[in-house]
């Protein structure tokens, strides 16, 4: 790894990291702070939930229990919004971390330095995953503190840990996918649209697959299928699913390296 390059990438992305961290912190605080008010309305909401078609409830990951504990409430938001927000940040950073040099013409500068392409890819990926872990840690710590603060009954932290571990793996998967996309899409493009489409798209593919048995297969395209984010303490951590996602992510990064090694850097 080239330390000089690694540190420069961290520095270059620090402003973006701060903005996205602020968004994620704000959202986490908001979700947990709402809970006490929602819990007060508990009975009414149970009635409301009964009137929602079961398929829709399944697709959105909500049921009557959702409002009974803070973790249930939090898990609904975590599995949709928070994971997607963090993934959009990490995947879009991944999509630009190598391609930005090409877009701005600076890859000529970088690639005429005494570093191999492999070292460049590796150092950049290391910064990328450092940034991803930082934002994940910031969000997790915020959630820990605020769930603790707003909980109305005792919290099952084992479930919380499992939930976040699954979240982390999905985030890492999207991060790797972001880097891979940038290898095949022309660098002049704005990757944000692609990244938002990929994260939301796969989330809904999983939701559709879960709600209708006829199209269950469709959910297997989605990383969410392999790691269920749930408040249910009887569901144990899906090691196989986690392994599948990590292996695919590793494969994508290997492919990134292969493509980059052979690339012509245009002037």
């Amino acid at each position: 790894m080239n330390k000089n390059l690694y540190l420069k990438e961290l520095k270059r992305n620090r402003k973006n990291l701060m903005i996205w961290s602020a968004i994620v912190i704000g959202f986490t605080l908001m979700v947990t702070a709402i809970f006490p008010y929602m819990a007060e309305m508990g009975d009414n909401i149970t009635v409301l939930m009964d009137s929602i078609p079961a398929e829709l409830g399944k697709a959105l990951g909500v049921d009557a229990d959702t409002w009974s504990s803070i973790l249930g409430f939090y898990s609904t938001y975590y599995s949709i919004y928070i994971i997607l927000l963090v993934s959009i940040y990490t995947a879009s950073t991944g999509a630009t971390i190598i391609s930005k040099e090409e877009k701005e013409g600076t890859s000529e500068f970088l690639l005429t330095k005494p570093v191999s392409r492999q070292t460049i890819v590796f150092s950049k990926l290391m910064s990328l995953f450092t940034l991803s872990l930082i934002i994940f840690a910031i969000q997790t710590i915020t959630a820990l503190i605020s769930i603790n603060a707003f909980a109305t009954s005792s919290v099952n932290w084992g479930v919380f840990t499992q939930m976040h571990l699954s979240g982390l793996i999905i985030i890492l998967f999207f991060t790797a996918a972001g880097v891979l996309i940038s290898m095949f899409v022309t660098p002049k493009k704005n990757f944000m649209g692609i990244v938002v489409g990929m994260t939301f798209g796969t989330y809904f593919l999983n939701a559709i697959g879960k709600s209708a048995e006829a199209v269950e297969w469709i959910s297997y395209i989605s990383p969410f299928r392999y790691l269920e984010i749930t408040k249910d303490p009887t569901v144990s951590f899906n090691y196989v699913g986690a392994l599948i996602l990590l292996v695919i992510a590793g494969g994508m990064l290997y492919l990134v390296n292969r493509v980059y090694m052979k690339k012509d850097i245009a002037g």
Binding site: G105, T106, E108, T112, P114, T119
Partner: peptide, 20 residues
């Protein structure tokens, strides 16, 4: 390439650097 470039100074015809 990496070892060779340690010994080379390169001045490109068009210069693109990090704006920030």
């Amino acid at each position: 390439g990496a070892e060779v470039r340690e010994l080379i100074g390169y001045l490109p015809s068009e210069v693109h650097y990090y704006d920030e």
